[in-house]
Design a protein around this nucleic acid. Structure first.
Lengths: 353, 353
DNA sequence: GCAATTTTGATAGACGTCAATCAAAATAAT
DNA sequence: ATTATTTTGATTGACGTCTATCAAAATTGC
């Protein structure tokens, strides 16, 4: 039951050829008669041989170099993402894997391209990047792939690019989810929803809003969309104005960032009448607090922890020329005041020695 | 930048001792003067040495044998879990990891203990088990741990046991989540909720119901709890009777299994008046269909995919005597009709060669 | 049948670690 | 000072794979 797994020598013996020939077959070195090759393949099949990746990598002193390229700035979500990647990076050292976290100014496509180009020549074994919808980025990715470097799109997909996979949520589904929850919270009654986004030109925001609208429109009204540019000051001003102008608003859906501004407005609302239902995205310190204080109802989170775990898993698999294990989009989590995770951000393991 | 990582020989050289001495230090073989030992430790620090796990495992022909012990029966959830574990098992072969899936009759503590005892002597490198709240199981786990075998509790925790970790959701939080959603769906109006469980003596069901009640009670009434024994026939009969007897029921929360029976009742409800809000657990074929057909509103899922990923990751880390990367409970996913995952159960990778 | 070519076999060194052995050196005990 | 003990060094083989080399054998062409 605990017998050792077959080695390539076992395969060679079984096939009645030398180790050298078996090696020529499995490593496609050529110069092997078809007759011998097929016997080797048969032996592999019969013995259930799988090559020992550890030994293979050892013999080649293979050590993986991965890079994650994230947008810079003080965005709370990416701050968290960066912290999670750094944690993962520490753990990976034992496995001869270096994960470097690289920062490029947000929305700066030329800078991103330059970075990608540089990485392409630096002997990187795989990279994950937060894409943007730009033709130059697209071709930079194509270049990397052409060099045989695996690329994963992270958080925001790059439409049309032949990346090896996308690690992130389906924003349209996330929007529909938000919509369904808002409808549910109306319990069949009429209402009018105020949608807030960063910019309608941002792909993820637009996708969310489209999904949201598709579910909500049959049941509820939609007020004109507010574009807050992800800046809390602007969001606060516009939302306050909209609520003032339209007392019939029963719900707010914020698909973008800058929610600190929205929360500020909610804080200042009169307490004697029911406040609107509020749904927004990303669990970050201020949205968490708002949930705990009952200022908002629902936070839809992209689960950066999951994303990081999948990026690491995916890059390793791809570097070994294996298949990705999971390619389905990450499902966003719906946070209510009652299912918030423990608040300590850096949880230690509870292993015993 | 791409220089090779330091080896133990480098460490020895730096410390001014022989390889043998450095080896004695890192492998705690003893017989090393404190003076030398500390110089070796300093060198390790300075060079940032991390031992090459691949080489280490290779030299010892280490190959991991893991076992997952699941309850038998035709439970849809565990069927799915088993399928997912088998998928993972296939992928793991390349890494010299064998994951065996073992089945023990549900709720049969003596049988489970016997199985665990047997595994303890078979040279297993780690196991995951669906625990039950039983003193005998508890001591069987203690035995395994005493032999140095890592144990993960899966799906259902074993209270008081010194397992290395728990992989599953927090059922109390899941119940509270369900409660909040039901409250939300009432939009401030009054209502009465019908709770359904398998048995109040089942720990997970009880936990869920307790969490649910804590959130719901301040706002809504609770009808008497139905114990359906997780059998669809019994569930159907009792729920139908309860709805008949009490027309004021505005919501149903099912914390256990046997939901096919509940769904059957919902199907037969008159279409002309609003049906109750329905929240239940586990996304399985019949609950999925009910969601798609609008017969129920919300499914709270334990994310068996996540659980499997974490079990595999965790057992490997533990077998290498490393720390668990993630010890926080899995967050259940809230499924609505609008965020159901793609229905093909066995998604293939989309890697290119 | 002989030369040219293709296919095979045998073997060796490297990767970094573990595990072991044996002799040499340093230190401690008496 | 002599013995006993502890501590070190040097070395070797194994793990399974990759890469390489060189000679031997089989096959092909003419």
């Amino acid at each position: 039951m605990d017998r050792p797994l077959p080695t390539l020598s076992d395969v060679a013996q079984r096939a009645g050829v030398s180790y050298a020939t078996a090696d020529r077959v499995v490593n496609a070195r050529g110069g092997v008669a078809e007759k011998s090759a097929s016997r080797v393949r048969a032996a592999i099949e019969e013995l259930g041989y799988v090559r020992n990746l550890a030994a293979a990598n050892l013999s080649q002193q293979r050590h993986y170099r991965f890079v994650a390229v994230l947008p810079g700035g003080d965005n709370a979500f990416f701050k968290r993402m960066r912290a999670l990647l750094e944690e993962a990076s520490d753990r990976l050292r034992t496995d001869r894997v270096t994960l470097t976290i690289d920062t490029v100014e947000a929305f700066d496509a030329p800078a991103l391209c330059a970075r990608l180009q540089a990485l392409g020549t630096e002997g990187v074994d795989g990279l994950a990047l937060v894409g943007s919808d730009d033709a130059r980025v697209l071709s930079a990715i194509a270049d990397l792939r052409a060099r045989g470097i695996p690329v994963l799109a992270l958080v925001s997909d790059v439409p049309g690019a032949d990346r090896n996979g996308y690690v992130g949520i389906d924003n349209s589904v996330a929007g529909r989810t938000a919509g369904r929850l808002v409808v549910l919270a109306h319990g069949g009654r009429a209402g009018r929803v105020l949608p807030v986004v960063g910019a309608l030109s941002a792909r993820d925001h637009a996708d969310r809003l489209a999904g949201f609208g598709a579910v909500v429109r049959p049941q509820l009204d939609l007020a004109p969309v507010i574009e807050g540019r992800d800046r809390k000051g602007r969001v606060a001003k516009r939302v306050a104005a909209a609520l003032q102008a339209d007392p019939g608003i029963t719900a707010i859906y914020s698909a973008g960032a800058g929610n600190a501004g929205l929360i500020k407005v909610l804080e200042s609302l009169p307490r004697d009448r029911p406040r609107p239902i509020v749904v927004l995205h990303e669990l970050v310190p201020h949205s968490r607090r708002a949930l705990e204080r009952g200022l908002i109802d629902i936070v839809i989170d992209q689960r950066p922890e999951d994303a990081v775990a999948r990026v690491v898993e995916g890059l390793r698999l791809l570097a070994d020329k294996r298949e990705l294990a999971r390619t389905d989009p990450i499902l966003p989590t719906i946070y209510l005041a009652d299912n918030l995770p423990a608040s300590d951000t850096s949880q230690k393991g509870e292993t015993s020695p």
